[in-house]
Nucleic acid binder design. Structure first.
Length: 424
RNA sequence: GUGAGUGUAGCUCAAUGGUAGAGCACUGGACUGUGGAUCCAGAUGUUGUGGGUUCGAUCCCCAUCACUCACCCCA
């Protein structure tokens, strides 16, 4: 019988990996706490229309990458391909904006996109995102970027860069779009076939094409910032000033384009090397019109999302392994396993990590097991110890000729002895 | 959706048109209460799957599936 396997693009995270994940998640949660962001949890499944309306019917994400299927009553459901849409839905549905104009929310969890998997890209992937609702002030943009940067810093990543751009607003973007399109049409012959297609569907996309020929055209293309309205320009200047004040800086990238339709004004990405063909670990921006367009009261908002799978990839390359708590192992001479039970119980109640060899083989094989598990101390329990009411403590890291390799202690003083030993 | 590469033991990988081998890991022993070093012994494979060529295929051919990487797109 053929064993059933995981679905393509999805994977099991085994203990070797979850060590990293748990360590990372703990720290990221800490960042959210310190910036005053509260967690929101929404379902992984939503009505398909939510994503079509918020992300954009024409985007690749919606047009060809969603896991969409019919519910039993025939209605169309989709696994969420990103987090913002559902948070906005919930924000509106629960009248959060009416109760209190300002909200700092974060979420963390699996997202789903039916793409061909490759390094740093999976069909089930994980994102951490933060959304700041209720402020159009550049201070909010700065805060969101600061949180995103703070997340990477909190887990020890230093080798990344920030890129910034503005997408304009409904006042200035249409005019820019026309100018860009006109410019691109003039140079249509130099563009790759994909970009000629994009010219019609999404001219902005031509700007971040990686083909050399298109890059040359894009380099000389008109910049949105030069055509932005005064409000947008001022906003962007102030965001940059705020980032300077924080020492974050960031590089202006006129050619940065976002994959989702709802962004306006400030957009940004955090980029890193070592992710294969991918380089983005986090991205975000302002989306002032989204809440209203989804049926809520007009509410300016900024947010970002970070790809946790990619961040773990970087962690494994750049950061020292997270430490494990010291492991205590109880080895009992054959026949004395019952005596280990209260001892284990006692150790765990005192907060230690303690295990035994549940196979209870030979004394020797138990020691081998302890070694394999990386035990810091082994507590030996045999006939002598039981008759004397003692336990022998064995230091697994001491050299074999050490005088303090192993020693006996009274049962009553065991916890204190272990505690003292591990303190050093 | 498109392209390329790779599928052999738990892992990393050899090998040859004549029914597969190493290292590591595992289990046991040398050491009847002591891990890490050494030595000895043991267990493990439908060579991804299906078909074709052949007296004979793990090897050659075709198909298929899976994985990996890249394109598209994106976190």
């Amino acid at each position: 019988m053929d064993p059933i396997r995981v679905i393509r693009g999805m994977r099991d995270l085994l203990p070797e990996q979850t060590r990293w994940w748990r360590w990372m998640e703990q720290r990221l949660d800490g960042v959210m706490d310190r910036y005053g962001y509260a967690e929101i949890r929404t379902p992984v499944l939503e009505h398909t229309g939510l994503f079509a309306r918020s992300i954009g019917q024409e985007t690749d994400i919606v047009a060809k990458e969603m896991y969409t299927f019919a519910d039993r009553d025939g209605s169309s459901l989709s696994l969420r391909p990103e987090g913002t849409a559902a948070v906005v839905r919930s924000f509106i549905e629960n009248n959060l904006g009416k109760k209190e104009p300002l909200h700092r929310l974060f979420y963390r969890g699996p997202m789903f996109r039916h793409e061909r998997p490759q390094k740093g890209r999976y069909r089930q992937f994980y994102q951490l995102g933060a959304e700041l609702f209720g402020s159009a002030h550049p201070s909010a943009d700065v805060e969101i970027i600061e949180v995103a940067v703070g997340c990477l810093q909190a887990i020890g990543l230093t080798d990344f860069s920030l890129e910034l751009n503005t997408q304009g607003c409904p006042v200035c973007r249409p005019g820019y779009r026309e100018q860009l399109t006109a410019y691109l049409r003039e140079h249509e012959r130099q563009l790759c076939t994909d970009c000629r297609r994009r010219l019609a569907s999404n001219p902005l996309r031509v700007l971040d094409c990686k083909q050399a020929a298109c890059t040359a055209v894009a380099e000389a293309a008109p910049h949105l910032l030069d055509h932005a309205c005064d409000d947008c320009r001022q906003q962007f200047d102030q965001v940059r000033a705020g980032l300077e004040k924080l020492g974050i800086g960031g590089r202006l990238n006129h050619r940065m384009v976002r994959g989702l339709d709802y962004y306006n004004r400030t957009t940004f990405e955090l980029l890193a090397a070592g992710l294969g063909a991918q380089n983005a670990v986090a991205g975000g921006g302002r989306y002032d019109g989204l809440v209203e367009s989804m049926g809520g009261i007009p509410t300016p908002a900024v947010g970002f999302a970070a790809g946790l799978d990619r961040i773990v990839l970087l962690l494994e390359q750049q950061v020292a392994e997270p430490e494990r708590p010291p492991l205590l192992f109880i080895a009992a001479q054959p026949g004395y396993w019952l005596e280990t039970l209260p001892l284990l119980q006692q150790l765990r109640q005192a907060g230690f990590t303690a295990v035994n060899d549940v196979r209870q083989g030979s004394f020797k094989s138990q020691l081998k097991r302890a070694d394999r598990l990386g035990a810091r101390l082994v507590l030996l329990l045999g006939q002598d110890e039981i008759e004397q009411g003692t336990v022998t403590i064995k230091d697994m890291q001491a050299p074999s000729d050490s005088e303090r390799k192993q020693w006996q202690v009274e049962r009553g003083g065991l916890l204190q002895e272990i505690g003292g030993f591990l303190e050093r």
